[in-house]
């Protein structure tokens, strides 16, 4: 019984993390049709930025936990704006209209460049920024000790998901974006500045990536290569959910998160395959992913 509760809690926490990581990827794909290989690097940049800021903030031994959360989010947004602007203005805007696969390769090149750029900026030594993680303490749920920070992550994921959904479904800007998603040319003919929409979307996607990294940083040790590790996971989530669909990413994250927690508790030997196994299974049954529709409204 305890194990079932544990699966539920662990699975949900992991799913929230997966969703945060995948949200930016799916937003960018939905609007821009770019499967962004460099998304993992954005995640890593967010983690590094947050970890170095937290390290600096607590370096003199004082500092309040409350401030550190603001710092985390502030760093993520700042890093997202800077990196997003640089990449979009400096590179991607010259590439629009190219083949979808070619865009994947461009972002793959970007990934290689950013991995080394991070190494040049932050070095290879691990960054440890645990203060926000431990500051919240832990709760006991049915005999299982759970970190409050991890529980808070669930809340953040829900808020981010709802905000994205509300933004797309309930605001004017969201309607314009949906028009772009639906038909780029027609939207353009109707007077929508598609390129501006792309810029905006890319900034938001990037910031979601850095936010996921910044929120993860306190619970891990930030080392080179963490970005590469999350890309395939994020891809799996969005492919399972249906590329470009926010609801899909949420459901995909839950499905993968719970499956993995189940494997860890009841069949640890299958843990290594579970993500790819579920992904293959879903695609075999629904070739477009759970919420993917060929031409219908995406995101």
């Amino acid at each position: 019984m305890l194990s079932f509760i544990a699966v539920l809690i662990d699975g949900t926490i992991y799913a929230s993390w997966l969703f945060l990581v995948a949200a930016g990827l799916t937003v960018i794909y939905g609007v821009m049709r770019i499967l962004n290989m460099a998304h993992g690097s954005f995640y890593a940049i967010g983690a590094y930025a947050a970890a170095s800021a937290i390290g600096w903030y607590f370096s003199d031994g004082t500092g309040s936990a409350g401030m550190s959360f603001l710092l985390l989010i502030g760093c993520a947004i700042a890093a997202g704006l800077v990196v997003g602007t640089l990449v979009e203005r400096g590179l991607l805007r010259f590439m629009y209209g190219r083949d979808e696969i070619l865009m994947v390769i461009i972002t793959y090149a970007l990934l290689l460049i950013l991995e080394d750029a991070m190494k040049l900026i932050w070095g290879v030594n691990p960054y440890f920024a645990y203060q926000p993680y431990t500051a919240l303490g832990r709760s006991t749920i049915a005999g299982l000790k759970v970190s409050n920070y991890d529980l808070a992550l669930i809340g953040v994921a829900v808020v981010v998901g709802l905000a994205l959904w509300g933004w797309l479904e309930r605001t004017n800007l969201g309607k314009i974006l949906r028009a772009v998603i639906h038909d780029r040319e027609v939207a353009s003919a109707m007077g929508v500045n598609v390129r501006r929409m792309f810029f905006l979307t890319f900034i938001i996607g990037t910031t979601l990536g850095t936010l996921a990294g910044a929120l993860t940083a306190p619970s891990i040790s930030v080392v080179p290569g963490i970005g590469v590790e999350v890309i395939v996971l994020a891809f799996a989530v969005v492919v399972v959910g249906g590329l470009g669909s926010i609801e899909g990413a949420a459901v995909g994250a839950l499905l993968l998160g719970l499956s993995r927690a189940m494997a860890v508790h009841f069949a640890p030997q299958f843990e290594l395959f579970v993500i790819y196994g579920v992904m293959s299974l879903v695609l075999a049954i629904r070739p477009q992913g759970l919420f993917g529709r060929t031409l219908a409204r995406k995101i």
């Binding site: 979808e100 395959f273 992904m279």
Partner: peptide
């Protein structure tokens, strides 16, 4: 061969990673 574009890419990646997992095991 039922898949195209990015779905083909991801599914082929998944099969490759499953073999990787089997070998690691």
């Amino acid at each position: 061969t039922r898949y195209r574009e990015i779905f083909f890419a991801m599914l082929s990646l998944a099969f490759s990673m499953i073999l990787y997992g089997v070998l690691v095991k």
